[in-house]
Design a protein around this nucleic acid. Sequence first.
RNA 1: GGUGCGGUGGCGAAGUUGGCUAACGCUGCGGACUGCAAAUCCGCCAUUCGUCGGUUCAAAUCCGACCCGCACCUCCA
Length: 488
Amino acid sequence: MKQNELQVYNTLSGRKEPFVPLEEGKVGMYVCGPTTYNYIHLGNARPLVVFDTVRRYLEYLGHEVTYVQNFTDVDDKIINKALEEKQNPLELAAFYVEEYFQDAEALNVRRATIHPKVSQHIGNIIELVQALVEKGYAYESEGDVYFEVSKFTDYGKLSKRDLNDLQAGARVEVAEQKRHPADFALWKKAKAGEPSWSSPWGEGRPGWHIECSAMSHEYLGETFDIHAGGMDLIFPHHENEIAQSEACHGSQMARYWLHNGFITINQEKMSKSLGNFFLLRDILQKFPGAVVRFYLLSTHYRSPLDFDDQKLAAAQKGLERLQTTNRLLKEAWKNNVLEEGKSGTKSEQQILAEGELTGEWLDYKIRFMEAMNDDFNTALAIAVLFELAHAINGLITAVVNEPQKKQELFLAGKLFAELTEVLGLELDSAGQKGQEELKEEIEALIEKRQEARKSKDYQLADQIRDQLKEKGVILEDTPQGVRWYFRE
RNA sequence: GGUGCGGUGGCGAAGUUGGCUAACGCUGCGGACUGCAAAUCCGCCAUUCGUCGGUUCAAAUCCGACCCGCACCUCCA
């Protein structure tokens, strides 16, 4: 569907809607972040990359985005793991927060505007719980505080469930102190050895859902634009957030709810019990982060995505195609040196940059945006990128004989860089940077090979080429001479 | 049982408020280029979109039935 304006699929309404921010030019966005009790797995990586891309595109459209992503650093899973490893739970969580940033960086995921942690917002949480108790939406029971679901008439509006179904389907042990099986904990009474804080209900710690209500309110206000996360969070987590926030403030919490689809392994959900659990760390041993990111974006974010090594390998090939165009583009400028401006005059580059995109080049940009406007259709956007790359490859060849096309190439190259940046695709090969010291040695070998070729000693020439290949150096013989680059 | 999602070529994946030749990538095949490669370029690879009916001048796209897969309803991105 062609769209001139951004349309977003909203879980709340179950359909695509035009995206109109609350305040023009500004977008407040909250994304549920990880519980930091381990390195992140592939399933965590998808929302990171997807919503980072959503943010980048919103910024590309000119919005100022306040992007909030929390860390759940107080939680049962953390406490259990800390007990096992005889560590302090808060320290353990802090460790994995740092590790998280390393993984995010590998995926070229930008830092959020704010990364709040539960442990630093206990005060906000207590205030919120207290307000809910005062308003009659929550009740205290033996040191625990529960949200009384039946008091909130909109309960189930996000997940499209009603309380009666929930009751029928409930398979969990019903806690004695709860008035209704679907009531959920806002505050939990402390157990020995757990991190706890004092509260009006005694020592304790927050329940799982309350943190997001408290922190989103703190940084984005009562009503904000986008709330996002994995599909599994729709119920109960996001449903409960809505109940807490809207019961307390009497206003809509988030206007657009976005949820990414799941990653499966061999068509099955990734889970520890099935033994098909992949840590991002382990995948990064085999593939660069850029490939993982590209792979995650090659499917629409709401579709399920099946993972295996062959599929990543195919994605790597595809990404390399874009990287080749990027490399060719840089080569082209090296061979067509842009003239520096004398003092007081413009450089050639500045003059070229003043041109405007026209014709087919403008079309690529429009088609890319139409794709992204259609609920962030990154798969289609990438297809446009491939077509653009293909057209640029042709133009690079043409410009050799037709220098007047230089400006066209310059602008097309700029567009290519701009659009790949919107998707956060990294096209400069990582190896290129850190291996300057090898340069002399490599060039000496290339020189030696060239001599061998001249004297038609192709055996030696091929041997040198293979030798370099083992070091990750790829040679290409072109009419303009030998071109070489690193490939991981 | 309730709720939701999906079934498109060898693989991945767009397109699904009906209408140009069913995108794009990977793989494969043929050709150009090359000493050979690599990269690039040119061309080919689904009469067909889970199945069966229906509506229509026209359907992958709408309607009905059926088959299959998955997820959520319990901690989970």
